[in-house]
Amino acid sequence: MPIRKTIYNDFQGSSSPRRKRRGVQPGDFQDPLSDYSPPQFDDDLEQDLAELTIADMDAWPPLVVAPTDSIENAIKRMREDDFGCVLVIDSENKLVGIFSERDVLNKIAGHFEATRKLPVSVVMTHNPVVIYDSDPPAKALNMMAIGSFRHLAVLDADDKPIGILGPRRVNAFLQKYFS
């Protein structure tokens, strides 16, 4: 009760914003965006990096395996499809990891016989960095050039993996601005 009373008193008070608004006439309307100045870009590439989306970069469709698939099978898939990584997804099509050439170099080389039958979930990178298809290309550049992530899993708004973005794909996107 005391709270309700306080609100009522505020509404009745002469300093209430609602009361002030009553005095505004239709002709007095001012567009809140009237003084908005859009960002200025020095270069077409700079503008596209900020305003296009990852969907415009034509990421490769992902190569996927299950967490229970063997390391040997994952490597075989990567070799057959000439991919630098595979996305590891669970039964609900959620991304749980990524297994890349770098994992093969760091964890498998010299231990292939001992590890080939193990599930890929043992050596994959858990909870990898991701990028959404609605993100700007500038974000991919940030994650690759500054964050040093070579492969980015591309997700849609439902967190479903829909692509893989690697440095070659990003370079291909940039090519048209270079010539």
Partner: peptide, 22 residues
């Protein structure tokens, strides 16, 4: 490839370096 990405990033820091990493 990574060298070229770093080169482009250095030219457009105000749109690239302000992005959230994750």
């Amino acid at each position: 490839a990574k060298g070229v990405l770093e080169y482009v990033t250095e030219h457009f820091p105000r749109v690239v370096k302000v992005q959230m990493m994750q």
